[in-house]
Structure formats: structure tokens, C-alpha cells
Simulated assay, not measured.
Amino acid sequence: MRLLRPSDAAALAAAYTRNREYLSCWEPVRPEAYYTEAWQAADIARRLVETETGGGYPLALCAGQALVGRFNLAGIVRGPFQSAGLGYWVDSKYAGRGLASAAVQAIVETAREKLGLHRIEASTLQHNVGSQRVLLKAGFRKIGMAPRYLKIAREWQDHNLYQVLLHD
């Protein structure tokens, strides 16, 4: 796992295209442009600016030279909050192999040691048991349920809310 690079745009567009159907039940409906190299290049550029200003930390999960997942600490808030939101996905061909668990555990350590965060939050659809297991293995605890939290697959859906505290 490493920080996203501008040169990842084509591989990321290909990964999203390859996983479009697989991710469709877990993500918002995306415009066609989302699956293009140009859209991904612009998004990577924006996220890298956020990284420079301390507002985000976008990561690529790679297997050899292949990009097989995205992990993102977003909305980093400093001051007394020191918190970020976590989102992620793993390529369907690599799902269920423990890669997401290992990646989230590494992100928790990076957030604590390198980024100096106090808290990471994440949410899952209520039926996304696999992602819930990933979060629990990384030390996250369920803190509630948000009704109609995000519009996923064309519907406002309830989400379980999780957090991990990184410092006592």
C-alpha cells in the first residue's frame, strides 16, 4: 500500500471499470465520466492537494504492479478533533483474502504514528458484514446506526457507524 500517484489514473480507471458491477451495491451511482482516466487523474490531483494541506490521505493497494484497491482517509480535521473518515474497497478478485484487514490495520497505525490523529470513523451498510469484520479486526467499535445516511445504489440507506480511538 502506498500513497496514490498521478500516474495511477489509468490503472485506477481500469480497476473501477473492472469492478463496476461488484461495487455497485456498495457505492453511489457514478457518472460515466467517473470511469475514465481523465476523471481519475483530476480526482487524484485534488486528493494529493488535500494531502499536502493535511486534509486527506489517499492510498493505493497494489499487488505487484496491479492496482487492486483504494483506501482513503478523508475530511481530516485538526485542532481539538484530530479525526478523519475512512473509506475503502478491494478488487473483487482479491476480496476475502485479508488484504482489507491488513490495509486498515496499517492505516490505523499510520494515522496514529505519522498523521497524529486521535480518531478514525467509518460507516458500513448494515448488511456489509465483511467490511464490518475488517473494521472490528482493526480495533474499530460500533458506535451507532445512522438512518438513511448515504445514497447508495440509488437509495438512501441505513449505515452502521464505527470509530477507533488512537490515543488514550
Rank of each mutant, 00 (worst) to 15 (best):
A45H: 05
T51L: 00
L67S: 03
A146E: 13
A45W: 01
R133N: 12
A33L: 05
P28H: 12
H118Y: 09
L135M: 07
S101W: 04
H127K: 12
A84Q: 03
P28C: 09
G98P: 07
L67M: 08
L67I: 08
P147I: 03
Q82A: 08
E32F: 08
Y162I: 09
L12Q: 12
N19L: 11
G75H: 14
H159P: 00
L4F: 04
E52V: 00
S101E: 12
L125T: 06
R154D: 15
Y35L: 04
R78C: 05
Y149Q: 05
A33V: 11
Y162W: 14
G79C: 13
G54L: 01
L99K: 10
E21D: 14
H167Q: 07
Y149I: 01
Y162F: 15
V90I: 15
L165V: 15
R112I: 02
R97K: 14
A14E: 13
E121F: 10
G54N: 01
V104S: 08
R47L: 08
G144S: 06
A153F: 06
G130I: 08
L150D: 07
L48M: 05
A84K: 00
A100K: 02
A11P: 00
G116T: 04
G87S: 12
V104G: 10
S7L: 05
L61N: 06
L73H: 02
A153S: 15
S92E: 15
L136P: 03
A15H: 01
